[in-house]
Simulated assay, not measured.
Amino acid sequence: MLEGQLYQLGFVCDNLEEGIASFRDRGMTHEPHIIEVDQPVNGPDGREVINKVRLCFIWIGDIQYELIQAIEDPLGIYANAPSNGGPLRFHQVCFRVKDWADFRKRVDEQDLPLAMERDMGGDNLKFLYLDGRKLFGHYLEYTWMTDAAWDQIRAM
């Protein structure tokens, strides 16, 4: 299942500041804002857990680089990014889909395992991770958001 608009490459960092330093003088035009998030997500069994992460987003052209430092990772999704000896470990690609209900229905009909999901309902951001590691070597993240939310993300 590969669809939607590819807009993000995600990396796991043990130290977010070291990860950000990797982007200095490599296209980063301004210092990114770091946020800490306690994010409720549902695991593959539907059980809700809290991911605690530090995040930053760096836009270079039309690609957003998401840097993730996991503080608490109860599903082990971020720990699955193997060490490569450097400050950044590739983790996922992210696609934006236009019709969440149609997309979500097809998720249940395809063969990649659901790794985690968050759907707060209504016009709130929705996302899920499919475990594509055996096939692609990384996770596939899919998001849905309103056009207004997309404009806010692009302006970060």
Rank of each mutant, 00 (worst) to 15 (best):
G61W: 12
G76W: 01
K134A: 14
I60E: 07
P74A: 05
G46E: 10
Y78C: 05
L130G: 02
H30I: 04
G46Q: 12
Y139W: 01
I77S: 00
V41A: 12
Y129G: 02
W150D: 13
I68D: 00
S22R: 13
C13L: 06
F136E: 12
A115E: 03
S83H: 05
L55E: 09
M156C: 06
D45A: 14
L6R: 09
N51Q: 15
R26Q: 06
V93L: 09
G27K: 06
T143P: 08
Q69T: 04
D62Q: 12
A21P: 01
N42C: 12
I35N: 07
P32M: 11
G86L: 04
L2S: 00
F103Y: 07
D25N: 14
W144D: 05
I71M: 09
C13I: 08
T29V: 03
V53G: 04
G85F: 07
N124Q: 14
R26K: 05
R104C: 06
Y78P: 00
F136H: 14
A155S: 15
R104I: 05
C94A: 15
D25L: 13
N80E: 10
Y129H: 10
E117L: 14
T29C: 08
Q64P: 01
Y139S: 00
V53L: 13
M116N: 05
V37S: 14
D14M: 03
M156P: 01
G19N: 03
E109R: 06
A81I: 02
Q92T: 13
D108C: 00
L16Q: 10
F95L: 09
A79N: 10
G121P: 11
G4F: 08
L112H: 02
H33T: 14
N80V: 00
I50G: 03
F23I: 03
L16G: 03
F11C: 04
F23L: 02
P87A: 14
K98V: 08
F136Q: 11
R47K: 15
L140R: 08
R154M: 15
N84C: 10
L125I: 15
R47N: 13
A149K: 12
